[in-house]
Simulated assay, not measured.
Amino acid sequence: MNSIHDLGGMHGMGPLPFDENEPMFHEDWERRICGAHLLTLMTGLAVADEARHSMERIEALHWLASPYYEHWLDGTETYLQEKGIATAEELASGKASAPLPEWAARLEALEPEAVTKMFTTNHPVTGESKTPPRYKEGDRVRSLNINPKTHTRLPRYTRGKPCTIIAYRGACLYADARSQGDYEALDHTYTVRFEAADLWGPDAGGKDAVYIDLYETYLEDL
């Protein structure tokens, strides 16, 4: 969707501060929010693409004024309410006023220590597609000009622009569909190259390019 989270290609957002020895968490509440958020995903309550879409819907000014892990907190609260796990009143009070939905009560509990494995082990994102890939290395294609109100991994600044297939990366879980509950959806993926001039015009560097991994669904024949 087109929201404040998608800032790629924009000017005027100010410098990015870098701390050479920056810790993973600046305050203890960030560590706890990170752990609680990941545990909801690991128990099967939601998938990462649903979580991302919940954060994309944060009001723009609040997004810009709030720190990174507050986005995680706000997003987690959103899908807890949407899935019937908690109400706004329960989240505010910290106390449950009703039993969990039957389906949620059957979820298997995980120990907090399991978060360590989540941080250090990649989870599988590939699968076996029933159809062959449409494109091959060297094909010239164009990204679609789409503006969905739901989750998408197609950056706004690349939409409607020509690009070149650099490599086929296999069939991967399709984030757009998974964010809407189709958890087994797959789509072919490719690394594509956008020439900077095609993205930003004559002000771009003549030798510059941007490489992005995109789903086949985002591409059309040129």
Rank of each mutant, 00 (worst) to 15 (best):
36 A>T: 11
61 L>F: 08
53 H>Y: 07
60 A>T: 04
73 L>G: 01
79 Y>T: 06
59 E>D: 03
73 L>R: 14
60 A>M: 02
61 L>C: 09
75 G>I: 01
53 H>V: 02
70 E>G: 02
38 L>Y: 15
32 R>F: 13
71 H>N: 04
35 G>E: 10
56 E>P: 02
31 R>E: 11
74 D>C: 12
34 C>Q: 08
66 S>P: 14
49 D>V: 00
63 W>A: 08
50 E>W: 01
62 H>K: 14
79 Y>R: 09
34 C>P: 01
46 A>M: 04
58 I>W: 01
79 Y>C: 07
74 D>R: 13
67 P>K: 00
75 G>D: 01
32 R>Y: 10
54 S>K: 08
78 T>Y: 09
52 R>D: 15
40 T>V: 04
67 P>M: 00
68 Y>F: 10
42 M>E: 09
63 W>H: 09
45 L>G: 07
26 H>V: 12
48 A>L: 04
46 A>V: 06
74 D>A: 13
53 H>G: 02
70 E>A: 11
54 S>A: 15
40 T>G: 03
58 I>A: 02
77 E>H: 15
25 F>P: 00
47 V>T: 06
34 C>F: 12
63 W>D: 05
71 H>V: 00
62 H>V: 13
36 A>P: 08
55 M>G: 04
46 A>N: 03
48 A>D: 04
62 H>N: 11
58 I>C: 01
76 T>D: 07
43 T>P: 02
31 R>W: 11
71 H>S: 03
51 A>G: 07
66 S>G: 08
76 T>F: 08
58 I>E: 02
50 E>V: 04
54 S>H: 10
66 S>L: 10
60 A>V: 03
28 D>G: 09
44 G>E: 00
70 E>K: 12
38 L>C: 15
65 A>M: 07
51 A>L: 09
31 R>T: 05
63 W>S: 04
61 L>S: 15
72 W>G: 08
49 D>A: 06
74 D>N: 13
70 E>I: 08
72 W>H: 13
67 P>C: 02
25 F>C: 00
57 R>Y: 07
77 E>G: 11
26 H>P: 06
49 D>I: 00
49 D>R: 01
40 T>E: 05
50 E>Q: 09
71 H>M: 01
23 P>H: 06
45 L>D: 05
64 L>E: 15
34 C>T: 09
34 C>W: 10
51 A>T: 09
34 C>H: 12
40 T>K: 01
28 D>W: 14
52 R>N: 15
44 G>D: 00
